[in-house]
Design a protein around this nucleic acid. Structure first.
Length: 449
DNA sequence: TTCAATGGCGCG
DNA sequence: AAAGCGCGCCATTGAA
């Protein structure tokens, strides 16, 4: 959308050139749209979305800089303490941020080993990725400390230190750039800065998210689609059990737990739901028993039996997956509900690894892409309605795949929340209801209730 | 100084 | 790491 990545002088030179090129390209590109049956998608979705994205970018988001600065100090102290201990255990000082140096310490100097050799894909060096350090952590303290150090370092470098520097001097807010033609599935991406990967999963992460705040007198309103990809799956596959669960407002993870683990597995409700959630979101895209076993802490054989039970319980899902791969192999293309296309030539690749990866991507695209289509439609509808809501004082300020974030005067919070929920839930008509969770708060974390 | 490749990891 | 998918950004490394 913006010139975020283009140097100023180049942008000046480029502006005129881009206008001319756009004009030259319009004809040929229109012909391609027509040939591929994409004119409706363009006219009704992508083109109307453009001004919405521009409005969001210009609105920006307010960041509580001092709050982040306070965090930075505390993190620095923890990092210093951790590093000192790591150096003691290693018997020398080294760059913990360098996988190369860390590997030399762990595997050469200390001679730690993993069950099976893990090498990085490009350089065939010893991997020091999370799973490796996690395994090494069972027998030694140092890798555990390195993981802790990495977690702090990641959040500090990527968010705590970086975000305050990106506050625009004129607006006092952070303005991202939404990229409309990057993701292969039709999703939007966000860059400079990326506001679609703000932390939330750890306590420190949640602290960072609390630094995304509303202006004085305003509140933030978060509205996110509940399990939208699974609902899209229910709609597209027509699976009776999935349709029934969503229509009857049954908790989908509990339902999967029942189908996969049975009524008397002996597991706690919480553990059942946790495992079922992983299964729901993973199996659809081809997760293997090997990886599932690691994720939920069971044997490979048990994991395989869960996978078998899942597809036995949702038979149309199996057929849906196979159908996408089959038609993709024949036509070279997979599509979303709205007709968005992704070319998948590698479905016929003779290399099994490459072919397998292509199959998983091909199955993922119609689901992830249809969810993206739906959110885009909702964005257009909501943005069009905002002038009539809360006296036109509510603004859309962010979009994150299945969530929209708004800023509105505190006294208009309820009115705005209700309007947003209604518009999002009725943006698209599926064979299952779309439900939206709405929350209000002074900051983003609080608004996600 | 800048760039690209790499390993690694934040989010949905 | 890869043997769920989709992204973008960080620091390091080596080269230009």
């Amino acid at each position: 959308m913006s010139f975020a990545q283009i140097p100023v002088q180049a942008a000046l030179d480029y502006a005129g050139e881009r206008s001319d090129l756009s004009l030259q390209l319009a004809g040929p590109l229109r012909a391609i749209l027509q040939k591929d049956g994409l004119e409706t998608l363009y006219e009704t979705l992508e083109h109307p979305l453009l001004p919405v994205l521009m409005a969001i970018e210009m609105a920006g988001v307010r960041i509580d800089g001092p709050a982040l600065a306070t965090q930075a100090q505390r993190i620095d102290e923890e990092l210093y303490t951790l590093a000192k201990r790591i150096y003691e255990l290693a018997g020398e000082e080294f760059n913990i941020n360098s996988p190369k140096k860390l590997g030399e310490i762990l595997f050469d100097k200390m001679a730690l080993t993993t069950e099976t050799l893990r090498r990085t894909s490009k350089t065939k060096a010893h991997s020091t990725a999370f799973e490796v350090l996690e395994e090494l952590g069972l027998v030694h303290e140092l890798p555990r400390l390195v993981l802790e150090w990495r977690g702090l370092m990641k959040l500090k470098g990527t968010y705590i230190d970086a975000l305050p520097q990106l506050v625009h001097p004129q607006t006092g807010r952070v303005h991202t750039c939404f990229n409309q033609a990057v993701a292969a599935t039709g999703r939007l991406s966000s860059s400079d800065p990326n506001l679609q990967n703000i932390p939330i999963r750890t306590e420190l992460g949640r602290e960072i998210r609390r630094a995304f705040v509303a202006d004085r007198g305003n509140v933030l309103i978060s509205a996110d689609y509940s399990q939208i990809e699974l609902r899209v799956l229910a709609h597209m596959s027509g699976d009776p059990a999935l349709l029934e669960a969503f229509t009857g407002n049954v908790d989908i993870h509990d339902r999967t737990a029942m189908k996969v683990f049975g009524p008397d597995s002996g597991l706690s409700e919480h553990e059942l739901r946790r495992r079922a959630k992983i299964i729901n979101y993973a199996l659809l895209y081809g997760k293997q028993a090997f990886t599932l076993a690691k994720d939920i802490g069971v044997s490979r054989e048990e994991a395989q039996s869960f996978i078998d039970a899942y597809f036995a319980g949702f038979p149309s899902v199996r057929a849906f997956i196979d159908g996408i791969i089959e038609s993709g192999r024949n036509t070279g293309v997979v599509k979303t509900m709205f007709g968005r296309r992704r070319l998948v030539p590698d479905l016929n690749n003779r290399n099994g690894q490459v072919r397998g990866a292509a199959e998983r991507a091909a199955v993922n695209m119609p689901i992830q892409g249809s969810a993206a289509d739906i959110l885009k439609k909702a964005m257009i509808d909501v943005h069009a309605a905002l002038p009539g809501v809360a006296g036109g004082r509510a603004r859309m300020i962010l979009t994150v795949h299945d969530e929209l974030l708004f800023e509105a005067p505190a006294e208009a919070a309820d009115e705005t929340a209700a309007a947003v929920r209604e518009l999002m839930e009725s943006a698209v008509k599926l064979n299952v209801p779309l439900t939206v969770d709405v929350g209000v708060g002074e900051n983003w974390k609080e608004a996600k209730s």
